[in-house]
Amino acid sequence: MNTPSYFAPAGGLPPQTDLLTDRAIVTEAYTVIPRGVLRDIVTSNFPGWTRTRAWVLAKPVQGFATTFAQYLVEIAPEGGSTHPEPESGVESVVFLMTGELDLTIAGTRHHLEPGGYAYLPAGADWSVSNPGDSPATFSWVRKPYEFVDGISAPEPFVTREQDIAPTPMPDTNGAWATTRFVDPDDLAHDMHVNIVTFQPGGVIPFAETHVMEHGLYVLEGKAVYRLNGDWVEVQEGDFMWLRAFCPQACYAGGPGPFRYLLYKDVNRQIRLT
């Protein structure tokens, strides 16, 4: 595949001469956090991390995300964490967009460059550091793992987007494709974090309305997204949260591909008690 492009925020502040206009939207069905609001003063510092800041895009709060948390994490050179995950029952996906990362899992070091992807199961012993000379920025998705009797929990793995062929959606002639890092039929996994790609003119031609909750971080390009009853323009660097059953569709007008990192919860019975 061609060398992929991934947008990461740079922080900073707008000049005092800018007008107070942007595209941020918060509703009961969806939220849009545009890249223009990802500034220095809205970052968080995490205990146990050095030379690191994070933009928290989603966390479980009433009226927002219920199944997951998602961050953009920026690590300066020589920064990182030896114990990044504070909760033993939480699994993670790390996807690197800029810079370099050394990810160590159970004593084995993996060197990640842009496009690098890692699944880290609940209870995994892992650490992360930036060995490069520029900031490393990655998306970090965290979810409580739902154990099931008779099904072994997944093992950790590290791969790259560049090594996985996208799977075209049926009857789309490749205009809509998904890069799947996990087999959809593998019931050990209770979440998928994939990359969805639309070529210019590609569409979701119906209003998807389903139980899965979504976090979408736009890696490249622009499009108009149908969220509940609204058409919303989005571009690289924007984040969208979609509540379960929020109707959704998409039109990618170009001029280049429109691509996003997609979280969804999958493969588990609905808990009623």
Rank of each mutant, 00 (worst) to 15 (best):
H214C: 04
Q199R: 11
Q162H: 12
P168K: 15
E161W: 11
G174R: 14
T159M: 05
P168H: 09
P166D: 02
V182K: 14
Q199V: 00
F157T: 00
A177E: 11
Q199E: 13
A223I: 01
N173K: 04
I151Y: 08
A177S: 15
N194Y: 08
E220P: 01
A165H: 04
P166V: 03
H189T: 00
L219Y: 12
A175N: 08
R160I: 00
T179C: 09
V148C: 07
W176T: 02
V211K: 15
D149E: 15
L187E: 05
A188R: 15
D190T: 10
G215P: 02
G215K: 14
E208P: 00
R160V: 00
R160D: 04
A207I: 00
I195P: 03
T178W: 05
V148K: 08
D171H: 06
I204C: 15
I164N: 07
F181A: 02
F181T: 00
A207P: 01
H214K: 14
D163V: 02
M169S: 15
W176K: 14
D185N: 08
F157P: 03
I151T: 04
A188T: 03
Y217G: 04
R180M: 12
F198T: 02
Y225L: 09
L219E: 03
F198P: 01
A165F: 03
M191A: 13
A207S: 15
M169D: 09
V182I: 14
P205C: 02
T159L: 03
I204G: 05
M169P: 00
D149S: 15
Q199C: 05
D185P: 00
Y225T: 03
L216W: 13
D186L: 07
I195G: 04
P170V: 01
F157Q: 09
T209G: 06
L227R: 09
V211P: 01
P200H: 11
T172Q: 12
M212C: 13
D190M: 03
T178R: 12
T209V: 06
T179S: 05
A177Y: 04
I151E: 02
D185F: 07
H214W: 06
V218I: 13
E161Y: 12
G221A: 13
D190I: 05
V193A: 14
V193Q: 09
R226Q: 13
V158P: 04
D183N: 14
